[in-house]
Amino acid sequence: MNLFRFLGDLSHLLAIILLLLKIWKSRSCAGISGKSQVLFAVVFTARYLDLFTNYISLYNTCMKVVYIACSFTTVWMIYSKFKATYDGNHDTFRVEFLVVPTAILAFLVNHDFTPLEILWTFSIYLESVAILPQLFMISKTGEAETITTHYLFFLGLYRALYLANWIRRYQTENFYDQIAVVSGVVQTIFYCDFFYLYVTKVLKGKKLSLP
């Protein structure tokens, strides 16, 4: 494992924990898209079914379990524990427009036509677009709390660091996974506009608000 991959995983973990703590401490999930969080829970579940079939390393197993546990806890907080604070009126992205095409694509373009591999592929495709309901919600309300923008920054940074990891792996191991790389590029592109706003506004101490 190279440094980029490790930093990417840490960034991902930080994002997930940041969101969890934000909701728990403020006892509110205002401004958070429950739909994006459900999609991420689906992504982790579909991808990490290999916990039951393949053992990679203790590190991989622990991270997978933590990601799944945190993700389901977040969904539970939004739709049950702090349901009253959930901003459902602004969370109106039609998720079927993401789930159906990515599911079809996973059946058509995959490494191997087996159930686990199709689910893995589906999770990769779905992850690349799963943040859209959240970004849509922000564009609709025109603003985001600063802590929410930190969450989005680290979540976006994670896949960008994975891009560096894949370049490194190609150089050193001649390894590349076309499905992951193309989806990772698409995923990172979705964050570019946000990265720009984050650097030009949030890092300068201003609140993220859209004109």
Partner: peptide, 10 residues
């Protein structure tokens, strides 16, 4: 280099 259906990343 990985076996079929094996993914070593998260």
């Amino acid at each position: 280099p990985l076996a079929d259906g094996e993914h070593d990343e998260l």
